[in-house]
Design a protein around this nucleic acid. Structure first.
Length: 486
RNA sequence: GGCCCAUUGGUCAAGCGGUCAAGACGCCGCCCUCUCAAGGCGGAAACAGGAGUUCGAUUCUCCUAUGGGUCACCA
């Protein structure tokens, strides 16, 4: 079977949540494949028996689906290079490791973990690190003896002791490392599982991966990968190393920076499309500097040469801006559907004029999670100081408030219908009668009704949301407070 | 500490020898406006430092500084 053409893969370890860095890697891998007419493959790298997390594989599927990164081959959809789960490819890795041992490019190492640990601590602060190649040239009979004795072993790659390894990364350019820096890395662990490095190379070749896309934390170990490809006589893939994503403090983004996984962000009211759009721009910039992109638009615009080399800081503020844009672009009923669960957090039973509230909130929020706080005033009038009735711009004062509220309460009581149109007409009329500016009458009404300096709508809209009874009760209470002066 | 990489406003970033050094977020101001948003207009804000190369460096080279990555039977 020959695999040709552009092929990229997303190869997560099922160890927990979908970090935005991982998601971005998946995105770029997807985009490289799509923009070049290639195929995007999903492979699960579950070679670490101890770090498996229940349900993590499902989370990967679900997340990719939610953001629309559809893979062409993978554990669920199959493909010509299956299985796409590393724990089911064990015999293959053993065969390949055995081949390297036979050819003298790898060897069995019987060193105990204790010895290795002692080695490391002995080097101490020097940090010259690494394995001392103790078993590299064990005599044949000694190997056979230990094997017969049932000693466990790992298989290590026999690295060249001199010379240098050079490679070209599509993003970072040419990189050269002296071979003496390279450790005789473990290929096969004593439990028979391959290490990440080994399985990765073996599978990338077996699956015909043309572009190896990954975070730049792998940059310095890439020479080891290349030496493996060479040991097997396989062609070296095109490398695309991605700049890291850091937190605001300049350190690698992690849990202590708050919500950094896709599911955290989604739970906080960010739209998948907005998240995807934002992270697409973290480390990549289109030729025309455009910012708003749908996935198909990204597929058309993406190119490797737009990837940046320096790390990017994950800026929640900018994500919030993106999210606000996406929220505003939603059709009103689509926004209502998304807002409803958040409405229900404050009003599990009671119904309000949801379409009205929804239309007021849509242009005003950036995260769905802002909704509960924004409508809490409907449930209960917030404590507020009388000084709120003072507003320079509206020329409103506690004194004018008394006049306005005193006049509009009876007016509202006799209103035949509690409609925005009617409310509006009456208040405009009232302003004329009192020779006041419109804002002068609207301000105290809104304050008395909501107790808030800023509300999701004007006075009329707030009255409509609250309904006749609640509105009147609050206006009366407001007036009484003003008259008492406290 | 060794090795590798990076360095344009607070953040994302354009730039790829000659620019008054784009744009976006955020911030500030003005307009619109029954508050706040949204929208419109405007503003403050950057080439880490030092040597070279060159007629000319943000762009090329070297050094320094700072930051990051990596040195596992983790990925």
């Amino acid at each position: 079977m020959t695999l040709s053409g552009i092929r990229t893969r997303f190869a997560p370890s099922p160890t927990g949540s979908m970090h935005v860095g991982n998601l971005r890697t998946a995105l770029y891998e997807y985009l490289i494949a799509r923009s070049l007419g290639g195929r995007f493959i999903l492979r699960i790298e579950d070679t670490d028996q101890e770090r498996q997390v229940e349900g993590a594989v499902d989370l990967v599927f679900r997340t990719l689906e939610r953001v629309g990164l559809v893979h062409d081959e993978g554990p669920d959809v199959g493909g010509p290079c299956g299985p796409y789960v590393q724990s089911r490819r064990l015999p293959y890795y053993r065969e390949m490791a055995g081949r390297l041992v036979r050819e003298g490019r790898a060897y069995r190492c019987f060193c105990s973990r204790e010895r290795l640990e002692a080695l490391r601590s002995a080097k101490g602060s020097e940090f010259s690190g690494g394995y001392d190649r103790h078993c590299r040239d064990l005599p044949e009979e000694e190997i056979r003896q230990r094997l017969d004795a049932g000693m466990s072993f790992v298989i290590r790659q026999r690295m060249p002791l001199e010379g240098e390894t050079r490679f070209v990364d599509s993003v970072f350019g040419e990189i050269t490392v002296r071979n003496e820096e390279l450790e005789d890395q473990v290929l096969l662990k004593s439990d028979g599982f391959p290490t990440y490095n080994f399985a990765n190379v073996v599978d990338d070749h077996a699956m015909g991966i043309s572009h190896v896309v990954r975070g730049s934390e792998y940059l310095s170990s890439t020479p080891k990968y290349n030496l493996l490809y060479e040991a097997f006589g396989w062609p070296i893939p095109i490398y695309v190393h991605l700049p890291l994503i850091n937190g605001p403090d300049g350190r690698k983004l992690s849990k202590r920076h708050g919500a950094v996984s896709f599911e955290d962000l989604a739970a906080e009211g960010f739209l998948p499309a907005a998240i995807l759009n934002y992270i697409a721009l973290l480390g990549w910039c289109p030729k025309d500097n455009r910012e708003r992109f749908t996935l198909p638009e990204l597929e058309a615009a993406f190119s490797i040469d737009g990837i940046s080399r320096s790390p990017a800081v994950f800026d929640l503020e900018k994500l919030r801006w993106f999210n606000g844009e996406y929220l505003r672009d939603l059709a009103p009923d689509a926004f209502l559907d998304l807002a409803m669960p958040w409405f229900r957090r404050v009003f599990p039973e009671r119904d309000l004029d949801w379409p009205l509230l929804s239309s007021l909130l849509q242009p005003r929020i950036r995260q769905l999670s802002e909704i509960p706080d924004r409508i809490e005033f409907v449930r209960e009038l917030p404590d507020h100081p009388l000084s709120l009735y003072e507003n320079r711009k509206s020329k409103a004062t506690p004194e004018t408030a008394v006049l306005v509220l005193g006049a509009c309460i009876p007016l509202f009581e006799s209103l035949p219908e509690w409609s925005q149109a009617l409310l509006h007409d009456r208040l405009v009329l009232l302003a004329q009668q009192l020779s006041m500016k419109i804002g002068q009458v609207m301000w105290p009404v809104r304050i008395a009704a909501t107790g808030l300096e800023a509300t999701p709508g004007g006075a009329i809209e707030m009255l409509a949301v609250l309904g006749r009874d609640v509105s009147l009760a609050r206006l009366r209470a407001g007036l009484a407070r003003l008259e008492r002066g406290e």
